[in-house]
Simulated assay, not measured.
Amino acid sequence: MAENPHQDVSDVAAIFADRARARMIGALIDGRRLPASRLAAEAGISAATASGHLRKMLDGHIVQVEVSGRHRFYYLADQQVATAYEAMSAMTPLPSVTSLRAGTRMQRLRSARTCYDHFAGRLGVAITAALIDSGVLVPLDEVADTRRREGDGLSSQLAPGHFKLGSDAAAELHSWGVDLAYVESLTRPTLRFCLDWTEQRNHLAGALGAAILQAARDREWIAPGPRPRELAITEAGAAGFARLAPALGEQLAG
């Protein structure tokens, strides 16, 4: 989150603490820019009430706004906001399933979703596991899988040091549609990892995680789900993921 010398942790926490604001942040966590009317609908509040909440989030550097003509589109200020949201989600019990519709919604979220600009849920964890198996990601400790390490908090991005890129990473990532040289030329860290709040395992974030998600979108392997953050895997995606990582293909088929 952008630095504000007049804020302390209680100020930031207060912004997240309101249910309507939390729902609006959740709607933006996949990196999109949305108008106030859409955010009001997501939060189940009036446009006037949403306007007040958005002002508080702007003042608190939680969101930013892009003006296009007469329209204003809101988006998360940076990935730290998404990270904080995921961290709090990890500390919140999964909601009780009281209907088939609610059960389906939770199943979709757990199956495949975005976390800011990268894959999350079972698909995100499975892709990370496939990259470990293929040698793209090489562990820097004795844990050669996605499991949570001792000392990893139930929070957002993890400290660097879990993995490094393997010697053949560039060639392997080419098959995923990712140009590693370009990814490494970006100013943001190539490798970052989040502790997935539904799976309690690591999923890949950082510039590489974002590039893999974008490549899947470009190949039309995934499509937006019914609600924000949800992802649907297309037939082409199921075949593509299975070709790149047979174990991942088996999970998708199951």
Rank of each mutant, 00 (worst) to 15 (best):
C115W: 05
I212N: 00
D218V: 13
R113S: 14
G69Q: 06
M91V: 11
L100G: 14
R55A: 09
A170V: 09
R201E: 00
A17Y: 01
A215Q: 06
A144P: 08
W197A: 00
L191T: 14
R148S: 06
R33S: 10
A48Q: 12
A239K: 02
I212C: 06
V136R: 03
L208V: 03
R243T: 07
L231F: 10
D11G: 07
G135A: 04
R217V: 12
R192Q: 13
T198Q: 09
G135Q: 07
V9H: 15
I62C: 04
G151I: 05
D168K: 14
H203S: 06
R217S: 10
A102V: 11
H162W: 15
P226D: 07
E230C: 12
R21M: 05
R147H: 15
A84W: 03
R188I: 05
A169D: 03
G206V: 07
F119C: 11
S51E: 09
T198N: 03
Y74D: 08
A2W: 12
A238D: 10
A13L: 10
K164I: 15
R201T: 04
Q64K: 11
T190E: 15
R105Q: 13
A129P: 14
L28K: 14
I132A: 01
A43Y: 02
K56M: 01
L94Q: 14
A245P: 00
R217E: 07
V136C: 04
D179G: 08
R122Q: 13
G124M: 01
F163C: 13
G60I: 12
L195M: 10
V143A: 03
D11Q: 12
Y74I: 02
S37I: 15
T128R: 12
S156M: 04
A50E: 04
V67G: 02
A181Y: 01
R32Q: 13
R38N: 02
R55W: 03
R217L: 08
T98W: 15
A171P: 07
L252E: 05
L39G: 00
D18M: 03
A245R: 05
A170G: 00
V178M: 01
Q251T: 10
A112W: 01
G254A: 14
D59T: 02
R72G: 08
R55T: 13
L244C: 04
T114P: 00
Y116A: 00
S175V: 07
D78Q: 04
P35F: 15
D179A: 09
D179E: 11
Q80G: 13
P139S: 12
K56R: 13
F193P: 01
L248W: 14
A216H: 09
H118E: 07
A47M: 03
I222K: 07
A210D: 08
R23V: 02
G26W: 01
G249V: 07
L173C: 09
S46G: 02
G225M: 07
R149Q: 15
